[in-house]
Structure formats: structure tokens, C-alpha cells
Simulated scan of single mutants.
Amino acid sequence: MVNTGDAAPDFTAPLANGDVDSFTLSERLEDEAPIVLAFFPGAFTSVCTAEMCTFQDRLSAFDDVDATVYGVSRDSPFTLNEFRAQNELEFGLISDLNQEIVDDYDLAMDFDDLGVYGVAKRSVFVIDADGEVAYAWVSDDPGVEPEYAEVEDAAEDAA
């Protein structure tokens, strides 16, 4: 599992931002760090929707320290664009449809009873301008949301 102090695994993936663009973590660090990666199991589910909407509601706190927030899930970029639109999210959502980022960050979780496998554990990473993980939070309970004030503090400290 990726921990505080580790080099953040680099990746390139589709970015749902109203359109579909390419996102490469290492290329975004210079202009957008600290970067907050908020992994969530699935769009349009209750806790995930609440979490992403809470990040939206608190976006100004991240903007104040020049931090950039991105959600990350296994959903397709097209699903994520619809999720963004319906919830009026102003930040981009990264599609990990092929489970590569989830695997690189060691976050895969299964819902055996639902027949759903390899989704992201709810987790948040703050990546500083050097590509180092300044903050890591991973929950084994998909019903638990992060401590948003703690994430904001970590982003401010990494700025």
C-alpha cells in the first residue's frame, strides 16, 4: 500500500472534465500540486455521491492553498462526466476503468455479495510538487468518509 513519504505511483488515464482528456500525474504536478486524489468505489452510490459533493462544497479551501482535487474511480469517463454534471462537480474525475491505478496504489476492494470486484477502497492521497505522498488515508469500510478538515490541512502543509 502507498504510504505517506512514498513516491506517488505515476499514471496516465482518461480525465472526465466535461469532455474526456488525458491525465498524467507527473505532468500535472508542476502546475497543480499539491494534488488531492480522492478514490471512491463507484459513481451514483450514496456515500460516494456524498463524498464528492462534500469535496465540491469545500473546494474553496483547496483553492485557497492552490491545491487541485481529483476524484478517481473505476467508472468509465462517460459515466463520470454524467456524475459530474448531475452533481455539479467543478473538479475532474479520473477514470481507472482498467484498474491499473487501483492496483498501483494497492486499493482493490471486492463486494462479493454483489459480484463487484476490484473497485477502489475509499481513500485520499495528497501528492506534493515533488511527487511524494504528503498524506495518505485508506478505509477498509466503504461507508466511512475521510476527515475533510484533515485533508485540507494536509493540502495546506504540502503547498
Rank of each mutant, 00 (worst) to 15 (best):
L25W: 09
A85D: 15
E51W: 07
L25I: 01
G42C: 07
D64V: 06
D113F: 15
S76M: 08
S46N: 13
N98F: 13
V65G: 03
L37Q: 04
F55N: 00
V72Q: 02
A13V: 07
F40P: 03
N17F: 06
T54Q: 12
D19P: 08
E32H: 15
T54F: 09
V65P: 11
I127R: 03
L59I: 11
R74Y: 14
R84E: 06
G71I: 05
L37F: 10
L15D: 13
D66I: 01
D66F: 13
A108N: 11
L107Y: 10
D10I: 03
E88D: 15
C48D: 08
L37S: 06
Y105T: 01
L15S: 09
D103L: 08
I101D: 10
V69Q: 02
A16S: 05
T68V: 10
L15K: 00
D19Q: 14
E32W: 13
I127T: 03
F40D: 00
V126A: 01
G18F: 13
L93H: 05
T45R: 07
D112F: 14
P14W: 05
A16Q: 02
S76Q: 09
V47F: 08
G42M: 09
L15Q: 03
V116R: 08
L107V: 02
P77E: 04
V36H: 05
A43L: 06
L80S: 03
A50M: 13
F125I: 01
R58Q: 08
Q56G: 05
R74A: 11
D64S: 14
D112V: 15
R58N: 05
N17C: 05
G115S: 07
A13W: 12
P34Y: 06
S123P: 09
N87I: 03
Q99D: 10
P41F: 02
R58W: 07
A108R: 13
F39L: 04
R84A: 00
I35P: 07
N17I: 08
S73P: 12
T45W: 11
A108G: 11
S22W: 09
D19N: 12
V65H: 11
G118L: 08
T12R: 06
R74Q: 12
N81S: 07
D19W: 09
K121P: 14
I94E: 10
D113G: 11
F125L: 03
S46Q: 12
E88I: 00
L97Q: 13
E27I: 08
P34A: 01
N87D: 12
V65M: 06
D75L: 02
I127V: 13
G92H: 00
I101V: 07
T45L: 06
P14F: 05
A61N: 14
I101F: 10
A38E: 08
F62D: 01
I94T: 05
D10K: 09
D113R: 14
R58F: 06
I127Q: 04
A50S: 15
F11M: 02
T49E: 00
V126R: 02
S22H: 12
